[in-house]
Structures are given as structure tokens and as C-alpha cells.
């Protein structure tokens, strides 16, 4: 081996490490077979079940239930691959000392988060690419009607997945073992799904539930998805009487930016001193 270095070049940039992390995270994701099957099958199975039970119903504005519900299914699937998967995986990596190694290598926290975010964006895209054809050809749900609706779909999905990732990083800081964090994350996700109008019309929910849900990304993600999948006139049946694209973008972007800054500053690489 060669002698000790005294003049060493600067360590690789955060961007280079982030790219390497995205590749690693994707490789790890696709090697966890159960997680792959669950992430991709979950939204499809939910669609099949709810369509079988409530397929004949209609939502306000004569919209078939399956069409109304696809937006919620897409949003909840994205929450699964972002918020839940990220929160649980970080808690596990912390418990098994994988984060400790990253800390000892001086890894910038932002590069670690970027690795998670990149993996989430790719897997979310794959998940949607599987769900939409099933909805289109299995249940005759119309896909976004024109380019501008596809663009809406694109930015809402991307911002929603990123916001979910940030929320996942945040909840991974909950105290307790990785298993108990996992339970907490799943329970929170379930409650948030109901509060955010994933399974029901958002308008039918009590006001306090609507207000609680408006604090979190899932409600805005679901609403944004509806604006991409439903006819424009259906916006009249939203709580504000319109799609609120501006507010949706604002809330989701605020989650991503403010959340990321807070997480970078407060992130813990190892479990609390004990």
C-alpha cells in the first residue's frame, strides 16, 4: 500500500455523492423483493377492491367513482413509496449503524436526502406507469385529457413525492426502535389517508379533519391529482370551489424546501446518547 497522504485533494462534492446514493438506493430498493411487490401492487389492488365494492356509485358532477377515486389511489400509492418507505428505511439504517458510517465519512446530509428523493422519484414513476394503464384499460378511467393536464399531473406528482420524502425524513427522527417507528409511520399514514379524502369525497369530511389534513402534503397531492384526472367543471365541487393550483404548489413546495432545511439541520445519524 502507498504511504500516507499529506496533501490531499478536497473530498468529492455533495452532488457527486448524491448521484452515487441514488444509484445505491435504487439498487437496494429493487433487491428488497417484498418491498418492490408491495409498492407496485398496493395501488393496483386498492383500485381493484374499491372498484369492485363501489364501482357503480357516482361522485358529485356525475363522475364515476373509479375515476374520482383514481386520483386518491395514485396519491396514496405515492405516499407509500415516499413517506412510509423513507421513514421506515431511515429508522432501520440508523438502528443498524449504516447512518453512523455515513456520518464517519463526513457525508453531507443533503446528499443522503437527495439519494432518497431520487430513488423515490424513480419508483413513484414506475408505480404510476403500472397503475394508470390498469385504470385506463381495466376500468375505462380516462387519463389526463391534454398536455396541460399531463403537465399538472407531472408537477403535482413530483412535488408530492418530494414532500412525502421530506415528511419521511422528519418522522424517522421519532424516538424508539426502528420497528416502533415503522408502526407509528404506518398508523399516521393511515389516519392521514382518511383525513385527506383519499377514500371519500373530501367535502364529506368534518371541518376539523379538513383543516388538519390541509397542513400535510397528502390532501394537496390528492386534490392536484383530481385536477389532472377529472373534468375541469369538477373543480366546482372542491372545498374552495376550484382546483387551487397556486396554493397546492405553494404548500407542497413549502414542505419540500422548509422541510429539507429543517431536516438537514436537525438530522441525527445515530440513536440518542444512552
Amino acid at each position: 500500500m502507498t504511504a500516507v497522504l499529506t496533501d490531499r485533494p478536497a473530498p468529492p462534492s455533495a452532488a457527486r455523492i448524491a448521484l452515487a446514493r441514488v444509484r445505491l438506493e435504487l439498487r437496494l430498493f429493487f433487491r428488497a423483493r417484498q418491498q418492490v411487490v408491495f409498492s407496485f401492487a398496493y395501488p393496483v389492488v386498492m383500485l381493484v377492491i374499491f372498484a369492485a365494492i363501489l364501482g357503480g356509485d357516482e361522485r358529485p358532477g356525475d363522475i364515476p367513482f373509479t375515476q374520482y377515486f383514481l386520483a386518491g389511489i395514485a396519491a396514496t400509492g405515492m405516499m407509500l413509496t415516499s413517506f412510509q418507505a423513507v421513514g421506515i428505511s431511515i429508522a432501520e439504517e440508523r438502528e443498524t449503524g449504516q447512518l453512523e458510517r455515513l456520518q464517519l465519512l463526513g457525508t453531507p446530509a443533503v446528499a443522503y436526502f437527495a439519494g432518497k428523493a431520487g430513488q423515490v422519484l424513480v419508483t413513484t414513476a414506475a408505480q404510476l406507469a403500472l397503475l394508470l394503464p390498469v385504470a385506463r384499460y381495466g376500468y375505462d378511467v380516462p387519463l389526463p385529457v391534454d398536455l396541460s393536464h399531463w403537465v399538472t399531473f407531472g408537477w403535482v406528482a413530483a412535488l408530492g413525492a418530494l414532500a412525502g420524502t421530506v415528511l419521511g425524513v422528519a418522522v424517522s427522527a421519532l424516538p424508539g426502535s426502528a420497528a416502533s417507528v415503522g408502526t407509528g409511520v404506518s398508523a399516521f399514514a393511515l389516519v392521514l389517508q382518511f383525513f385527506s379524502g383519499v377514500f371519500f369525497g373530501f367535502l364529506e369530511l368534518p371541518g376539523w379533519m379538513q383543516q388538519f389534513a390541509a397542513l400535510f402534503p397528502l390532501k394537496w397531492l390528492t386534490q392536484g391529482m383530481r385536477s389532472a384526472f377529472l373534468p375541469d367543471q369538477a373543480g366546482a365541487f372542491e372545498i374552495a370551489g376550484g382546483w387551487e393550483h397556486g396554493r397546492t404548489a405553494l404548500v407542497l413546495a413549502a414542505w419540500v424546501i422548509i422541510g429539507a432545511v429543517v431536516c438537514v439541520r436537525t438530522f441525527r445519524w445515530r440513536r440518542a446518547d444512552g
Binding site: 502507498t2 497522504l5 439504517e93 443498524t96 449504516q98 458510517r101
Partner: peptide, 29 residues
């Protein structure tokens, strides 16, 4: 640092993990 914690993803091979972490150093072995 060689700590007591293992700190490596179980699903990676020895070569994969070494190649990956090489990217964290300016002049890795």
C-alpha cells in the same frame, strides 16, 4: 474509523459496497 457497528446494507456484495464508498473519498485505495 472501524467502529463496533457493522453499518452496511446486507443486500450488497463486498465489491459493491467498497466501490460505492470509494466515491466518498478523493483518492480511495
Amino acid at each position: 474509523v472501524v467502529s463496533q457497528a457493522e453499518g452496511a446494507a446486507q443486500e450488497l456484495t463486498v465489491r459493491e459496497i467498497l466501490d460505492h464508498f470509494a466515491g466518498y473519498h478523493a483518492t480511495p485505495r
